[in-house]
């Protein structure tokens, strides 16, 4: 059987917020290592890779590997029945066609459980090659979210240019052009610092819509890491973490737009 107890059930709500715009349904793959999900959006432009480590759970048991296909809109409905600070237990029997979510209030005086039907989903796993990225940008996640939101008003695409000077986000459309430049600042211990690890300058262009969807994960982590190399998909990574627990990560891959 599978059983996983998450001390902060609200984490799963935030994870769902971070993937529900991109995916209608997805398989959660359970193994001894933890819970993993890998899925592309319908148009095969972006990919979500979620990893929740077994160690992040208060209790974790997985006797045999299983894949639980879930409708994410249904899962959102169930998670709405919980409070953010409820303790969440997810459990399923081997070969079951339902998964059970149990919510316990912090003081233990309310327990609710919900069964959700599982789906048989065609798994289409992709092999993602190991890549040494030409530039890796680490920045505050809410700054990333604001930049993407602001520039999305201008055009359908956002160019990200990374160089020694820093990072420049640009978008052009009917009303004009927007540019937002971030300088590297190395002020130690600063929460709002931007760090660029650069092997070579890179400029790539991406669809604003997807970047906006990725930014929904900003609630999971204060930092976001953007990794870019010429002519390969962008990686946007958020740690899934609280001050006292490292749950894993959510990574988004986004295919670049091609120059005309």
């Amino acid at each position: 059987m599978f059983e996983a107890r998450l001390a902060e059930g609200g984490i799963l709500k935030k994870v769902l917020d971070a993937i529900k715009e991109l995916l209608n349904e997805a398989s959660f793959d359970c193994s001894e290592a933890g819970l993993q999900l890998q899925a592309m959006d319908n148009s095969h432009v972006s990919l979500v890779s979620l990893n929740l480590r077994a160690e992040g759970f208060e209790n974790y048991r997985c006797d045999r590997n299983m894949s639980m296909g879930m409708n994410l809109a249904s899962l959102v409905k169930i998670m709405k029945c919980s409070a953010n600070d409820d303790v969440l237990t997810i459990k399923a029997q081997d070969n079951a066609d339902v998964v059970t979510f149990v919510f316990e209030s912090k003081n233990g005086d309310r327990v609710s459980d919900f069964d959700m039907k599982l789906m048989n989903l065609d798994q289409e796993h992709l092999g993602i090659p190991e890549t040494d990225y030409a530039c890796v940008i680490k920045m505050p996640s809410n700054e990333f979210a604001k930049i993407v939101r602001d520039l999305s008003q201008f055009g359908e695409s956002i160019a990200i240019a990374c160089s020694k000077q820093g990072v420049k986000f640009s978008s052009t459309g009917d009303i004009g052009t927007g540019n937002i430049k971030l300088a590297q600042n190395s002020s130690a211990d600063s929460d709002d610092k931007v760090v660029v690890d650069l092997q070579e300058p890179v400029t790539l262009t991406f669809a604003s819509r997807y970047l906006n969807s990725f930014a929904k994960a900003a609630g999971l982590s204060e930092k976001v890491t953007l990794s870019m190399s010429p002519d390969v998909p962008l990686v946007v990574e958020f740690k899934v973490a609280t001050s006292d627990n490292d749950y894993g990560y959510i990574r988004y891959y986004l295919a670049p737009k091609i120059e005309d």
């Binding site: 432009v45 990919l47 796993h125 992709l126 998909p233 891959y253 295919a255 670049p256 737009k257 091609i258």
Partner: peptide, 14 residues
């Protein structure tokens, strides 16, 4: 025409 690539170009199905 949208010049958006898909991920299939870069990643291998397994």
């Amino acid at each position: 025409k949208d010049n958006q690539q898909t991920l299939i170009v870069y990643f291998i199905g397994t």
